[in-house]
Design a binder for these strands. Structure first.
Lengths: 383, 383
DNA sequence: ATGAAAGCGCTAACAG
DNA sequence: CTGTTAGCGCTTTCAT
């Protein structure tokens, strides 16, 4: 009883006798929208019955339903106002998807796009919609998008999520919004979907080692919100906070590769790979193999190699991660580790469904597969 | 005066004596969420004052606000529940964006992505979020996504929208949702943003004509939801219902080009362009120039030409539309008509803002610019 | 099968 | 500057 008791006599006094009858103020956009009450009145039934006619839940005589629908038709009523329904049900039907990056970059990454596609395909039939929430742009921007703190959403999905003290996760916890973390650090209160980054990268590493390479450089995904660019020294390596980057890197080193250079990029795009490629391949002591943490980065390195007149794989081997189809790299086919992107999206969708049903789903780790293309070959004899 | 609690004796007649006190049923997800009323009680102020403390609208003593915020902090209250706020305000803060295609395809189109990026950049500061709504996949699917009829949104944006009897627009009208139509047929009740397709394509046509070409084929965007593929005969041409396709086509013909073939594609993607290119360039009497309605289609044609051993532009000229940066086509640079993509997104955002303010914005037609690259050249002497 | 009542959580108009 | 009151539009018991 949150404070609204009145002494008996006061009721009339405090009641709205003194208030002039208020004109309901409406949006300028819509002239007095029709409500379910209007429809019910017009059909000569109660609001609750009219509600039944639309929701289909609960018993209602076919004739009555028809009458209600008829009345709705006549009044141009397009169905229950979602806002009222949402408040009543305590559900918005919205899944917030926090992209792993600023949208302009995120959408250029086929990995993000294909996962998002798989996700929407799963969510659509559930009647759930996707609200796009931009991820961290760079460290100069606020850490969490305002939408994250104010938008209505039943569940949030963080695409390649961050660390355990990630401000995004903090905010979601505060709001009590259940979350699915994709490619992040597992946490007890958050559902997790990921792939076997470590295993996949280790397999790729063994492939490259088997070819005889020893001077192997690696080009990585961003380390953190700083998004630095260039070779990472020990100090910088210690700061590596993005889990996906860390796991792929440790897959490589755990398989026995000691990279000559760990080259950090600010984003997983072709141009960043090209920049890395130019830096790595134009100096002295260039590596005979460059293992990249994404296909986009790898294709940039291939482009840079071509630019520098180096033959792939005769002069330098290049490998990526993700297993994208990159026809424009033709005639080359990238050696890569394929991850099941659509399945990943579907798995996220299932996790969302579970959370909505009040269940915490088991962490999912999807398998990956080494796919040898034409961009890796034996170490050059003169190297 | 609906159902508050009153001192036992007074209102017993009208009150719910017969009703057992109900346990409020909550989502299984959240254990009894804190509300503004709880915070207000804890801070010793009224709910409305507490509301003021959060919204910042209206006068409130600094000390009071601090006390409320403090109480919120202690109770772990993350701010007003958006559902309640939305119902009360009659606004959801959501802009539904109906993509021009199934998401998996839409996201592969840099045009859609860059416009979407420009749009979100404008909408973000306005506190508006983007709800993704898939567009029509093909004719076998339902014409409008269920989200369109049930999701809460204040405004809808239809990306390269359809015809005047478009089922999407019909639905939005029924719901009374204001809409922005991008690249569609102008309509009195809908805001319009587009580019000068006709003029741009005409300019491109003149460029090609000036180079001496006469056997000119054109590769077009989809005609309608059917998404047929192949040369369009007169009958098919009469069915052309997507405005953007029509305008770009008429820009070409109005400039004096009579295409040898009008080749319709099911989507604006590289592979569709490649398929068209193979079809157009491998037969006899092949055109000396192929003018495409998008850069993605054009780059597919270039790839097909290379595949067939044809030199671009010595053997065949290829032109596109959009002005995308396609580095992987290197060393070629596509001749194209550049459209201002980010500005387009921003213009859409402004239209949304206007509609929300109850104003119908003037139709916007953004300028385009011919950009001559390396893929168009003089007609081959032997042709 | 239908109706009455309650109330989801919030903001805004108004009075003081 | 603060509190009171009303009610956004709907769904859901519960009683009939």
């Amino acid at each position: 009883m949150r404070g609204r008791d009145h002494p008996a006599g006061t009721l009339t006094a405090t009641s709205n006798v003194t208030h002039a009858p208020r004109r309901p103020r409406r949006s300028a956009l819509s002239v007095q929208r029709t409500t379910l009450a209007d429809v019910a009145a017009s059909a000569g039934v109660s609001v609750s019955t009219a509600s039944l006619a639309f929701s289909g839940s609960g018993p209602i005589a076919e004739a009555t339903r028809a009458r209600v629908l008829q009345a709705a038709q006549e009044l141009g009523y397009a169905g229950p106002n979602p806002l009222g329904r949402q408040l009543r049900r305590g559900r918005s039907g919205i899944v917030g998807v926090i992209m792993g990056d600023a949208l302009r970059r995120a959408f250029r990454d086929p990995v993000a796009v294909q996962v998002l596609d798989g996700l929407t395909a799963t969510l659509g039939p559930l009647g759930l919609g996707v609200l796009l929430i931009p991820g961290p742009d760079d460290a100069s921007q606020p850490a969490v998008d305002p939408l994250l703190s104010s938008a209505a959403m039943d569940v949030a999905v963080q695409m390649w999520g961050g660390t355990s003290d990630d401000p995004v996760l903090e905010m979601l916890r505060r709001r009590g919004t259940p979350a699915v973390l994709v490619e992040g650090t597992p946490q007890p209160d958050v559902a997790a979907v990921g792939i076997d980054d470590h295993g996949g990268m280790a397999e790729l590493a063994r492939h490259v080692l088997d070819l005889g390479h020893t001077r192997i450089a690696t080009v990585t995904l961003p380390f953190d919100r700083e998004r630095a660019e260039g070779p990472a020294d020990a100090g910088r390596l210690a700061q590596l906070s993005w889990e996906i980057t860390r796991r792929r890197l440790s897959g490589l080193t755990d398989a026995g590769v000691s990279p000559t250079v760990v080259y950090e990029t600010p984003a997983s795009l072709v141009e960043n790979g090209a920049a890395a490629g130019r830096a790595l391949l134009s100096g002295p002591d260039r590596p005979t193999a460059v293992v990249c943490q994404s296909d986009l980065l790898a294709s940039g390195v291939v482009l840079a190699a071509r630019e520098l007149g180096l033959r792939v794989p005769q002069d330098v081997s290049v490998a990526g991660f993700d297993g994208l189809d990159l026809p424009w790299l033709a005639p080359d086919v990238l050696t890569s580790v394929a991850q099941p992107l659509a399945e990943k999206g579907a798995a996220i969708g299932q996790a969302v469904e579970d959370l909505l049903a009040g269940r915490m789903p088991e962490p999912r780790v999807l398998p990956v597969q080494l796919r040898v293309g034409t961009t890796t070959g034996p170490v050059p004899p003169d190297a």
